[in-house]
Nucleic acid binder design. Structure first.
Length: 139
DNA sequence: GCCAACGTTGGC
DNA sequence: GCCAACGTTGGC
């Protein structure tokens, strides 16, 4: 299994909305960046990810699971863009802020820290464990 | 609200 | 194929 991080502005699509979609999940649409799309193409059913609030909050707020592999993004006719579906699994008991992540030497290589603009990004297993611990998420 | 960083576009 | 111009993202 691989681990990922999905970034969204809470004003546009927030954790509460994701939770409201329940087990059916929701397509992670609107990505118009090749790197992010390519990561989504690599995702497998059951891969786990963090749900991160950018701009407001700037924190990991929950855990999600990939529940559909890459398919065309229904919000555009442009065939270049694809997306996966994700569903909420658990809310963070404690939100893990960007500030904390930046301050933790174990997380210094995270894409979130080094390429903050990438909206879909891989997370290493070690990083996954550290953040799950900090957030009170069960792995 | 500002601005730096980055990705994309399009003229040449 | 290069690169300047432009638009967008996201932290501060």
């Amino acid at each position: 299994m691989r681990y990922w991080l999905f970034k969204s502005e809470p004003d546009v699509w927030g954790w509460d909305q994701q939770v409201a979609r329940g087990a059916a999940g929701e397509q992670w649409d609107g990505v118009r960046n090749y790197q992010a799309r390519n990561f989504m193409r690599e995702m497998a059913l059951g891969d786990r990810g963090f749900f991160y609030h950018s701009n407001k909050g700037k924190a990991v707020v929950g855990m999600v699971e990939v529940c559909a592999t890459a398919h065309p993004d229904s919000t555009t006719d442009d065939p270049r863009w694809e997306c996966v579906d994700i569903r909420a699994l658990q809310p963070a008991v404690r939100e893990v802020t960007l500030e904390e992540i930046k301050a933790d030497p174990r997380l210094k290589d995270m894409v979130l820290v080094n390429n903050s603009r990438l909206s879909v990004q891989p997370v290493s297993e070690a990083e996954w464990q550290v953040i799950c611990d900090l957030a009170g998420l069960e792995t």
